[in-house]
Design a protein around this nucleic acid. Structure first.
Lengths: 312, 312
DNA sequence: AGTCGTTACGATGCCCGTAAGGATA
DNA sequence: TATCCTTACGGGCATCGTAACGACT
């Protein structure tokens, strides 16, 4: 049994049982992959894939169990390399971040500047996309950390609140504020509903002409005079948005949170800890390790005193 | 990075950094091991061992972290092989048991008979020794399961009560019972003390001429008329011990327990589950899996209702 | 002086890549 | 017919074992 054989079966499983595509993605020849898989099956004495003639059709029950363990072994292999790099080049590497639009644009931008100054040899790779994909990104190792507006709930993931934001009204400076259509920021349906409930009756009954989870979309339509915006205060840029006027919303509106999520078995390189600490001083190495030991999302969450989080 | 290289560094660490001895134990040449270790270190860019000239002196901090992960990978490799065997030859393999004297002689003997009838192709390997070594045996993989009188407490181990026993008085049949010296069974100091406290004052003040955790030692001295024995009722063999008379002790004496322990990450082959179930019907697969997820020994223990355990 | 790890070297065997073959949709 | 996996074959390279060397205790 060789690590490479395990990598082959793992990748074939990930590529919908297409050996050719797998071989290409691994920059090797297709017969080589095919043969190694067969050799592994022979050695173990078990079929991992079911074949119909010469096509791979499915994964056997034994294969599923084996693939699960193989995945862990491959990740552990990566962990060993990370450990080695931690000692060989402690401050070099790649910071792979998944971000929601709000976090990418307004929360981490300046912190990443700071981070890059502190760790000039660390390459930063950002990845932005639908928050519902964050789980896959983390599990596949495409990103190491994500910052978003929703809590992750998969059993292999850990999710902690790392910052708070509050709503503010945004209007064109040249307009007196009046009864207008509303352009509302909300990360999901639930947030939208709770916002609706929290608003005073006159506001709640107003027309919501736009609901978006991207603050820049809201701003765009505010500028087009579609109405008044209701979005996270953090999204206001006092320079670029000098044509707009921000006014903090009443305390009765729900407070938003940024969630910081990662794989339970992530190897925390030094600069990853630094980045986490930069996001929120509450995310200390010991706390992160402790959180990784907790299975339940609510137990993890309880480690953080939300009141103490930076409020934007 | 190859699995074999990881095995080499792991085994060298286990063999007190002696490469020659390691190579011998792995049935390979010493230069081969040496070279592979060096190759791995070169690939990772980190020293795993510190060298004084040409001798391995110590493990580097990086090496310690790497070895920990490597150990997990190697165990996972074993797990994959186990899974494969589970499907290829579900009812063949080896049952490696660690046992205390009482469990070996009186608790599992007949169950093992039964087990062997059910799984004739499973080899049974018993290992008996000081209970304080059970932890090492489990961690090193020398045994898969242990049954003893003490709870295991290492974080990597799971420990569950699996049976109960109670004290009985043992005397030579040809002797009237009278005030006599006592020969007492106790697995450790704590058990000895609690027994002492539980005995009525007259008994507690009697001479304890022998304290042993091996019931057969007690019996031997009972036969030699050193006194009256106080030992687990289960240790009485109605045929072989027909020259002795057993009388159950008062309910006030502490009840003893057998503890069933295993590595948290043990791969449960089918016949392992069967053996556990044979020991105690309470040890069902789901419960065992659940126990493996609990970190605290008391949480694990709480899964079992002690009242329901077989009483011997 | 003995134990132990490293270096050097030669041979075996494994892994990979190209090319051709057969099965399925 | 096109896609896809398998078998066959040859070249290259890594691993292993023997033997000789150098270092530490």
């Amino acid at each position: 049994m060789k690590l490479q054989q395990l990598r082959y079966i793992f990748e074939v499983a990930r590529h919908e049982l297409n050996v050719s595509a797998t071989a290409e993605s691994l920059y090797t020849s297709q017969p080589g992959v095919s043969k190694q898989i067969r050799l592994l099956e022979d050695e173990l004495g078990v079929q991992i894939f079911t074949r119909s003639g010469k096509h791979l059709i499915d994964i056997t029950p034994a294969g599923r169990q084996i693939l699960e363990v193989a995945g862990r072994m491959l990740r552990d292999g990566q962990v060993i390399k990370d450990i080695a790099r931690d000692y060989a080049q402690p401050n070099a590497g790649t910071l792979r971040l998944g971000l929601c639009p709000l976090a990418a644009r307004y929360l981490v931008a300046d912190r990443l500047e700071k981070f890059s100054k502190e760790y000039p040899k660390v390459q930063v790779q950002l990845r932005q996309g639908e928050e519902s994909h964050f789980g896959e990104w983390l599990e596949s190792g495409e990103v190491d950390l994500v910052v978003g507006l929703r809590q992750a709930h998969a059993p292999s993931l850990v999710s902690l609140p790392c910052a708070r934001w509050r709503y503010a009204w945004l209007a064109r400076s040249d307009r007196a504020r009046a009864a207008e259509a509303m352009l509302v920021f909300a990360q999901d349906r639930e947030a939208e509903d709770s916002l609706h409930r929290a608003l005073p009756a006159d506001k709640a009954s107003q027309r919501w002409v736009l609901v978006s989870s991207d603050p820049d979309v809201i701003k765009t339509y505010v500028r087009l005079e579609w109405g008044v915006g209701l979005l996270p205060a953090i999204a206001f840029d006092s320079i670029a948005d000098s044509d707009l006027t921000l006014r903090l919303a009443a305390d009765t509106l729900p407070e938003g949170r940024f969630w910081f999520s990662f794989r339970r078995d992530l190897h925390w390189r030094k600069f990853l800890h630094s980045f986490a600490h930069l996001l929120s001083p509450a995310l200390k190495p010991e706390l992160l390790q402790q959180a990784a030991g907790l299975r339940q999302a609510d137990e993890q969450q309880a480690l953080i005193n939300a009141e103490s989080l930076p409020l934007h």
